[in-house]
Design a protein around this nucleic acid. Sequence first.
DNA 1: GCTTGACCTGGACCGTACTCCAGCTCGTAG
DNA 2: CTACGAGCTGGAGTACGGTCCAGGTCAAGC
Lengths: 128, 128
Amino acid sequence: MKIGRLSELTRLSIDTLRYYERLGLIDPPFRKGGQRLYDPDAVRWIEFLKALKATGMSLEDMKRYALMRARGHGTAANRRVMLENQHAKVLSRIAELSACATLLEYKIANYHDIEASHELADKTRHAK
Amino acid sequence: MKIGRLSELTRLSIDTLRYYERLGLIDPPFRKGGQRLYDPDAVRWIEFLKALKATGMSLEDMKRYALMRARGHGTAANRRVMLENQHAKVLSRIAELSACATLLEYKIANYHDIEASHELADKTRHAK
DNA sequence: GCTTGACCTGGACCGTACTCCAGCTCGTAG
DNA sequence: CTACGAGCTGGAGTACGGTCCAGGTCAAGC
């Protein structure tokens, strides 16, 4: 498939796909008359990159992962360790966000109280 | 307190504190001979800003919140809505991260399998 | 065979959130 | 009263992750 199609399937812009290729995140595909022709497997790999990115991994780290992957099975243990570290980061980020959610709930409840007491004050004033 | 002390208490750099002031996130404090002198309450406000930031809110949105806060109780309902929106974003981000965590767990388990089968292959080869 | 839309490259530019710096002033300890 | 560490300003610089553009090439349909 050509880059336009890959862009549709992955919902990454054409510019971003080429940018990722330059960074070394995506293997340079075969070319036909200068145009990139991707293997359908590229979609699966890019979806995985998107998942890594969603975990908060930097493009730099994703590049290191991609490089190891390209070097084959000898790097499997190192790749696993990277994923384990990232997994730990995701869990702690979830914990952080949960704490923030709780704080927001508390603040929101507070605003409800404030608004209720202002409404009450308005009604009282109106009744006078 | 002076800015150095505030920086220690909030674990934000002095430059960041002045930057936030320029952006309008922090009220310009009183000055004594040109030097900023902060009220202890500033610490609480900055901790709240840090929590908003941890939720993924942009400095721009935090500025809008700070502006409304400065305008007083008439903006309470709007501020509550902002917090409610942010709360929704946090929950969906937690859901996204949870899905990523599951994917990572799956991948990591996969690597364990791969490593185990390679070890087995090595042992077999050794036994020959 | 020609048009036209998709694709190509290299490099400039962008937004966000800081971070650093030069050159200056302030204030407190000795 | 002086030294020096902390603070001041305005502006430049940085890192990250893209995004856009000019000027050119390719290929598929008519």
